[in-house]
Design a protein around this nucleic acid. Structure first.
Lengths: 189, 189
DNA sequence: AAAATGACTAAATGGACAAATTGGTCAACG
DNA sequence: CGTTGACCAATTTGTCCATTTAGTCATTTT
């Protein structure tokens, strides 16, 4: 990748993280990246595509991190939980995802909504892969992997994020227990 | 309840259902109810309280309907599903709840957000009661009933509402199966 | 020639101000 | 005493106009 493209991506990432997508101007990105504004448009056809590219990188990074959390000697239920935990820890701790999610909640910028929806879909697709691998190995019984991944994702959000809004947040340990008891029990072969 | 109060409640319910909370004016309600505007304020201290009272009635109505769906000769898992099904069918089919939920999504009117949050909390409390009754009878193993009710509620939303946004909606039968397999299995004594 | 640039444009946004609307009150009424 | 609608303060809406912004492209730089 060219030097200038990297500078642009770095600058935009920093600005999106700091001010959000809407409040970031292309002039600002150009200045921070120390390039002319026109240069940005030789690499990206619009502001929206710039965001999409950056979020694609984030998605790859999250998948890499989730993969790193997986230990193939451990059973499926343990691994899927480790992966989910990493995914949501990332979302909660990385400035860019924090800022973008906040922007969706507070302003509802359509471009950001779309891109965060894609992030969700990709995370579900990732979990789905893991389920299918486990199914192939006979670690879990056969099931609709898309639906199962969707359910795991939603349940994790419920436990990890939603519950904490009106109650004392659950420990990772407690979440793991519940996950095991209620969701994974039904999956055992 | 006085005649005039009923007229006011009926008019407001109709107007909220038709135009939403924000787009309903107190003058309009007064006119529809064929009373002076001041009369409204002898029964309700504000527009918000009028909404709250109406939603309280809706909550009671939903609970009554859910209760009617329960058959004490059937096992817990069957009954809890029947109740949940009724609850969400109500939300999807009644003009008032449809309009108010739409208003929260599209405009985010704070008063409506608050009142719909309360509706959710009350539904969870209702499910919680059913769980505790079942626990007392030994139909399900002992557990944190609040947490369990919360999980059931969230899972039902995921299956009944969220899944359908990006996939072919699930049949009630399929939802029941999944519910049984994944959530209720972990609850069996 | 290819890559980079920033002045430029059309469109969107925001601010300031007036006009209209609305939730809530209360003196008067029957 | 229950009811009312004219009235008020406050918010919302409509309307300018100035500013800002995403995106383009003729020109410059390499």
């Amino acid at each position: 990748m060219s030097d200038k493209k990297k500078q642009i991506i770095d600058a935009a990432t920093k600005s999106f993280s700091l001010f959000g997508y809407k409040a970031t101007t292309m002039d600002q990105v150009a200045k921070m990246a120390k390039v002319g504004k026109g240069t940005i448009y030789t690499f990206f056809k619009s502001k929206e595509e710039l965001l999409e590219d950056i979020v694609s990188s984030v998605i790859s990074e999250i998948k890499r991190e989730a993969d790193a959390a997986i230990d193939h000697r451990l059973p499926f239920n343990e691994n899927v939980q480790r992966a989910l935990q990493r995914i949501f820890t990332f979302r909660k701790e990385h400035e860019l995802t924090i800022k973008l999610l906040q922007e969706v909640r507070d302003i509802g910028t359509p471009a950001v909504r779309d891109v965060m929806k894609r992030l969700d879909r990709e995370m579900i697709a990732y979990i789905r892969e893991k389920i299918e691998e486990a199914m192939a190995k006979g670690e879990v019984r056969s099931c609709d992997s898309e639906l199962m991944a969707f359910l795991m994702f939603k349940m994790y959000i419920a436990l990890n994020i939603d519950w904490g809004k009106e109650h004392e947040p659950l420990s990772q340990q407690k979440i793991a227990e519940l996950f095991d008891l209620y969701l994974l029990k039904g999956l055992s072969p």
